[in-house]
Amino acid sequence: MVGGDSGIDIDEQAINIASLAVQAILYEASCYPSPGLVSKDSRGAHSDMDYFTFLDSATVLINPLIHCAEAGQSADSPKEIFSKIRQIGQMGEGKMFHKTRGVNTHKGTLFLMGICCAAGGKALYSGAGFSSIQKIIRDMTEGLVERELSSRVIELENTHPSRLTHGERLFLSHKVEGIRGEVQRGLPTVFDVGLEVYKGNQELGQNDRLVQTLLAIMQFSEDTNILHRHSFETLKEVQRRAKQILDLGGMRTAAGIKAIEELDEDFCRRKISPGGSADLLGVTVFLYFLEGFMNRR
């Protein structure tokens, strides 16, 4: 435990987990060209935020993520842990919005990273190892779509649209399960796609490796950020074009790099921002870091 004159004790292992999560968040925000996304070199498709907004936001996420990791380190059931971290997440959201003056930089990231930090804490506490994390995530979020979306359709239909979340609106209009469905299934886009590609491109420089993994995720991500601001047709276009660029070699070839630079220009012009894919990239990098950390113990 890390203590001091304040009398506050913070678990060092929770600090380690959360610091890896914030490192991954900063990695995601730093790679370029990341089509339509904020990076160190571009505002992307956004006029209300830039790279420094993301850095400001990331600094306040360390607090809630430490608490999420701590919550995981207990004998509580995965569902009990999830209930605790939802409250921690709400507190963290408030801190984020205060820091960014109302700009939503990391709401989706905090939800995903909070779950993953708690799952990592639980895996370490139980001694089950990294291979248990996907099941822990599934156990934590079992029934989430039913509880928060499917069983509430009548209630949501009678709620003023301004009081609905983006995810709730999309479920009502298109039955899209969004981020809730992704975690309930155990983050398959991360475990089956993101991690495989990130691990398989270790010979690339860090920036290019991140962009390559982002493209791979964009092929499959049911990105609600795009659906909220655009349409299913735009989402299908994003998925198709990401696959085409990877077929050209992505960041491994001159043709692939040129194609992604053109995609970035197009997305910035059309205000297309695959923020959901960016969140999944951050989680991919975090879980890669976490696996290495757990294997070194």
Rank of each mutant, 00 (worst) to 15 (best):
S57N: 04
K175C: 09
F293Q: 04
T224L: 09
Q23L: 15
A71H: 01
R240S: 10
I136A: 02
G114A: 08
T165Y: 05
G72A: 05
Q244A: 12
G178K: 02
S277L: 03
D247F: 15
M96V: 06
A278L: 06
R240P: 11
M218C: 03
S132G: 11
E261G: 13
A18S: 02
R163W: 15
C31N: 03
S6G: 10
I137Y: 03
G129I: 06
R252D: 14
A71Y: 02
C116G: 08
E168F: 08
T253F: 07
L235D: 01
Q134E: 14
S132W: 10
K107N: 06
I133P: 01
C268W: 02
L287I: 11
S47A: 12
V190M: 06
G167M: 06
K175T: 07
Q219L: 11
L112A: 12
S83G: 14
T213C: 10
E28L: 01
E203I: 14
R240I: 12
L227K: 05
G143V: 08
L164M: 10
L65G: 00
T284L: 06
M251A: 05
D266G: 14
I62A: 10
M251N: 01
G120W: 05
Q202C: 15
P274G: 02
G205H: 13
T100R: 02
G167Q: 04
G4K: 07
L55Y: 09
Y27M: 12
L215F: 05
E265G: 11
S30E: 05
Y51Q: 04
P274R: 00
D139M: 09
L149E: 00
I257F: 12
G282P: 01
Q244H: 13
E177I: 10
K84R: 14
D41C: 14
D223K: 00
V283H: 04
H67I: 11
M113Y: 05
N225E: 07
R297N: 13
I66T: 00
S6Q: 08
C31P: 03
T213A: 10
S39E: 00
E222A: 14
L26K: 06
L144V: 13
I137P: 00
D41R: 12
F130W: 04
R252Q: 15
N225V: 08
M140Q: 02
L20E: 06
H228I: 11
M218W: 01
R229K: 09
L246V: 03
N158Y: 08
D139T: 06
A118S: 10
I179H: 05
Y32M: 06
M218H: 01
E80P: 09
I62Q: 05
A119R: 01
L235R: 00
K122S: 08
M1S: 10
H160N: 07
E222Q: 14
G194W: 04
M96Y: 03
L280Q: 01
S126K: 12
R185D: 09
Q90F: 15
F220N: 13
D50N: 06
N104Q: 06
L246Y: 02
D279Q: 02
I136H: 00
